[in-house]
Design a protein around this nucleic acid. Structure first.
Lengths: 141, 141
DNA sequence: TTCGTTGCAAAGGATTTGCAGCGTA
DNA sequence: TACGCTGCAAATCCTTTGCAACGAA
């Protein structure tokens, strides 16, 4: 998986290809896990010692809007971000310590049996988000 | 379901029964859905016009620690809170518009078929949180 | 009286924004 | 050149904390 695919996609939308943008995408790609904006920035500083927080957030938001990354909030210290390598559903084993994720290609149903034995499940979360009958009209478009 | 059960539980732990505390629990009980700290505070102001944010948050944290309420972050604008009426697993249909929740007593597996037809599922989230083999030693106690 | 609770004010952390200058295409 | 991108500084939003006064048991 390489960064150009995503950068090309951005370019097609009229966004520019800057070194910092590329670095952000590349770091996220190397990780394949959820990392916080803070952690991402620390890694970026190896290449761009003076990069600013706002640039990081602005790019994260852009990448999120373009559906290149996804955001998740587990644990403390703000959101974490992760590259979207596929259009699969978002079912993951998420390590609370390192944030590493492992994609589960199966749907939630009938899934427990596929969880590797050596992954220690502490808690799980299953939420169906949508609109109840009363609010269907409130649904956007 | 009535507030005294929860207030008694707090009292047994050495916490005091104040009017504001009671009001917070009662409002959460009336809701049976996730509401934000902000929304909760607005409702509290009907009874205690001068209640402060800190009191709300301090009580929410206490109730959370005592496992009387649970916290979830979906959408924007900070966490939302909801009374825990049972010790069931936490599987819900969450309405993105009103925050109303409906408990699913079944486990995530083999569940889709039980979702009411009139609930419009926009997205779902299934996360198993825990520790991967490499991080097991990092797990708290 | 004791010890938990509260309001106030201030601090904290994460994230966003206005603006002017910079860099890509 | 044009317009998107960036850093800076400041602001915003949500949440927490220290402190002294207050209130429940």
């Amino acid at each position: 998986m390489d960064a150009d695919k995503f950068l090309r996609q951005l370019k097609e939308q009229g966004f520019k290809l800057t070194g910092k943008r590329r670095a952000i995408v590349e770091i996220l790609l190397e990780q394949n896990r959820y990392i916080s904006a803070k952690e991402l920035m620390e890694k970026l500083k190896a290449v761009y010692p003076h990069i600013s927080v706002d640039t990081v957030y602005r790019n994260l938001n852009l990448l999120k809007e373009e559906k290149i990354i996804e955001e998740s909030e587990f644990g403390e210290g703000g959101s974490r971000f992760r590259i979207r390598c596929s259009t699969d559903h978002h079912h993951h084993l998420v390590c609370l310590a390192c944030g590493r994720t492992q994609t589960l290609h199966e749907c939630p149903m009938d899934l427990m049996r596929y969880v590797p034995e050596d992954f220690q499940v502490v808690r799980h979360r299953f939420e169906l988000l949508g609109y109840c009958p009363d609010c269907k009209t409130a649904a956007p478009h």
